[in-house]
Amino acid sequence: MSNRMQNILIPIIAVLLGIIVGTILMIVTGYDAVAGFIALWNGAFGDVYFLGETIRQIIPYILAGLAVAFAFKTGLFNIGVEGQLIVGWLAAVWVGVAFELPKIIHLPLAVLAAALAGAFWAFIPGFLKAQYRVHEVIVTIMLNYTALHITNYIIRTKLSEGSDSSDPIAETASLRSPLLESLTDYSRMHWGIVIAIIAVIIMWFILEKTTRGFELKAVGLNQHASNYAGMNVKKNIILSMVISGVFAGLAGAMEGLGTFGYAAVKSGFTGVGFDGIAVALLGANSPIGIVLAAILFGSLKVGALNMPLEAGVPNELVDIIIALIVFFVASSYMIRLLIRKINKKGVK
């Protein structure tokens, strides 16, 4: 079997394995698996309201997936998407609350603020990696918690007077769309889907059509060869993290300006950043793959909320399935071995 075929088969097999294990778990624990999956489907696509909510969930997933994938193309593992997202969320809301401007300026400004905040938060690990050869995984993990505590502090002291949530953003900074909401039976679907699709195209364009993109990928494949070919490895590492942070910050803007319209103190992470790792991994870091993976995970996440209501199955089942998919994709060596064995039997 060709490599290309295998690369397409592996994510599909991983998803199937994840669903199979999830089904077994439901059967073992005595839940009705069929009812569970029907509830999941209805919760994601059952009517226009759920469809709208699913699309709303897909928006930040696409952007978080792009963020992880972009850094990955340069050989960097950005676990800090979560932190960059939180910082972006805060920045967007801050601009959304603090200014009174016409929409044509205010909204882009708020989105830009989120992108810059995410970029800055990702610049730190990029710079430390380039300059001091510090592993970006550890720095980004540490920065996730730093972001969580600092944004909580700012929300309590600067964006409100000791309360747990900021004021709602001005209408002029909002991504919310009465049109899309009315089309989808008043779900929280918003214009962010347009931004997400543009971001997908931009990522594809940078990586496939520009010299810079070629350099970024080259650094990811072999730093020494790139260096020898006259590329500035340090600069490319920092740039890759910064662009990754822009995508992550935008994902935060989607939550701050679209879904919620405010920023609130968080006791834990949103999870979107970590799910972004799953999205990028399953999508094999390609723009189209990321969109497909984001659609899958977004539908699973939103559909899951219907499972306890309609079938009495805890919605955490979907978290288990997502974790298993990540696990199986990561262990693709196992799946490759399996494919090879099956192929050999076929030859005999």
């Binding site: 593992f77 955490e316 978290d319 288990i320 997502i322 974790a323 990540v326 994709v329």
Partner: peptide, 14 residues
């Protein structure tokens, strides 16, 4: 790193 992330997600879910 990916496997570790999966462990974290899986633990919370399970």
């Amino acid at each position: 790193t990916v496997s570790g992330v999966a462990i974290n997600l899986l633990a919370v879910g399970v």
